[in-house]
């Protein structure tokens, strides 16, 4: 199986269908923009295989996303659909596309800052408020309502907000 970046032009219709599969916990965000689709191949004429990589190993949404991919591709006419999870490409938050960052913002989440692999408390805390844009914010805890979110407070507009965590 070839990596994501090499196969998009080979199977544009499959990628278009996958683009419509949304993260069940962030319904503005496509799984393609989230960066978790790491392989697409067509081993036989009516067969398609899709490989996903987890954002977090304990992410409970992954099984649901596998099912959503299978349903969407069957709907697109593929009779033989195999969706599986592999760790061979480890997901990191830099794999979220520009469109994905915009989608996170649209859902009210501060997008993760781009990082160079080095994540410390100062990187985590430097998050602009998604409501008013102020950088005068404080991280309350790196753990949130889902594994991929941290919790913050905006000292400028006095709102609590969540951020999608940077992961290396």
């Amino acid at each position: 199986m070839v990596s994501t970046r090499d196969t998009r032009h080979l199977h544009p219709e499959i990628w278009d269908a996958l683009q419509e599969v949304l993260d069940p916990e962030i319904p503005t965000l496509s799984i393609v923009d989230l960066g978790i689709v790491t392989g697409v191949s067509t081993p036989a004429e009516d067969a398609v295989e899709v490989k996903l990589t987890p954002t977090f190993s304990g992410c409970p949404a992954l099984k649901i996303m596998e099912q959503l991919v299978e349903d969407r591709l069957k709907q697109a006419g593929w009779r033989n659909v195999k969706v599986y999870t592999s760790f061979d490409v480890a997901w990191n938050s830099n794999m979220i596309s520009e469109a994905g960052l915009t989608a996170l913002h649209k859902h009210g989440l501060a997008p993760p800052p781009r990082h160079d692999g080095y994540i410390e408390l100062d990187v985590l805390s430097d998050v602009p408020c998604p409501l008013c844009g102020s950088r005068n914010t404080t991280m309350k805890t790196p753990f949130g309502p889902t594994l991929c979110r941290s919790m913050h407070y905006c000292n400028h507009c006095s709102n609590a907000f969540e951020s999608f965590k940077p992961v290396s």
Partner: peptide
């Protein structure tokens, strides 16, 4: 993969 998680 686990390295990124245990960091937190």
């Amino acid at each position: 993969k686990f390295r990124g998680e245990i960091k937190y």
